[in-house]
């Protein structure tokens, strides 16, 4: 039995190394001078560590310096792209969670004609894959003149997603009714109950939906690629794709790309350190997106 446990731990250790090592190699490459890539590629640490790759993807070097360090010299500013992504995530997670909580509450608790029918229609959107609505939504955003604006980028998801409405309705259904009945006797209307009773009681699920939405928005690629390629509102993921295509020679600018990739991971790492426990616990059945 003991050898079995040791073996089990050994397997888990291998999995952890396989999970973490690629990230280490990313950081290691980011710290390596581009000229050393051919010779210095064995050790766990670079022989001549440098921060030049970070400096140039943050747009802190001159064009000539960037080119000398292996870049294409095209303008890049990952500080800007990370800020754009942060704004994108915050807008979507904040508003979507609030609006879906309102809708979920109405479907769970308020009485009005056609409630179950409207809910069923809303939920049927879960059956439609994103690419199907993506094509017409692209045309719509283009026709509205919202290409390359933050408004156009957040529009399709900021008001609702069927999953968030479904998830939050399930939660509101499970809230005990007696507290609300007491609040009604105290003279509260539906708004009063929602803001003063229901929302404070659902901090857990709200944080779960908010966090999951932030993670998905941070990873978003296809939609912002289509409507937000412009420099002003370019997200981190889109910027990484553009950066790869800008590579100067036949060989991609690996040291620069890995520096930019490292920057794209940092905010996620902060989130994991701050909210890791919450995030891990939220993975029951919220992940079905």
């Amino acid at each position: 039995m003991r050898t079995g446990r040791i073996l089990g731990w050994a397997v888990l250790a291998v999995i952890v190394v396989a999970t973490v090592f690629p990230f280490w190699w990313m950081v290691r490459t980011a710290l390596t001078p581009a000229g050393d890539l051919f010779t210095d590629n064995a050790g766990l640490l670079p022989q001549n560590p440098t921060l030049i790759n970070f400096a140039r993807v943050l747009g802190l070097t001159s064009e000539a310096e960037a080119r000398a360090a292996g870049g294409s010299g095209a303008h890049i500013d990952f500080a800007r792209y990370i800020l754009n992504s942060a704004i994108y995530c915050t807008l979507i997670a904040g508003f979507q969670t609030l609006f879906c909580a309102m809708a979920g509450y109405a479907f769970a608790r308020l009485r009005f004609p056609g409630r179950d029918l409207v809910f069923a229609v809303l939920i049927s959107a879960l059956m439609v894959p994103p690419i199907f609505t993506l094509l017409p939504n692209f045309v719509l955003v283009k026709d509205l003149g919202l290409m390359n604006t933050m408004a156009g980028m957040v529009a399709p998801t900021i008001l609702m997603t069927p999953f968030a409405v479904f998830f939050l309705r399930q939660f509101f259904l499970s809230l005990p009714r007696d507290v609300e009945e007491a609040a009604i006797l105290d003279g509260n209307g539906p708004w009063g109950i929602f803001w003063r009773i229901a929302l404070p009681m659902s901090r857990g699920p709200l944080i779960t939906i908010g966090l999951t939405t932030i993670v998905w928005a941070w990873k978003d690629f296809l939609w912002p690629l289509l409507v937000g390629r412009g420099e002003d509102n370019r997200l981190v993921t889109v910027a990484l794709g553009v950066f790869l295509q800008q590579s100067p020679n036949t060989q991609p600018d690996w040291t620069g790309l890995m520096a930019a990739s490292t920057l794209s991971v940092l905010p996620v790492l902060v989130l994991l350190v701050l909210m890791g426990k919450r995030l891990v616990q939220s993975l029951n059945f919220t992940g079905s997106k």
Partner: peptide, 10 residues
């Protein structure tokens, strides 16, 4: 969970 949190592009 870390690899899941990172964008697919990265």
């Amino acid at each position: 969970l870390l690899p899941w949190l990172v964008p697919n592009v990265t």
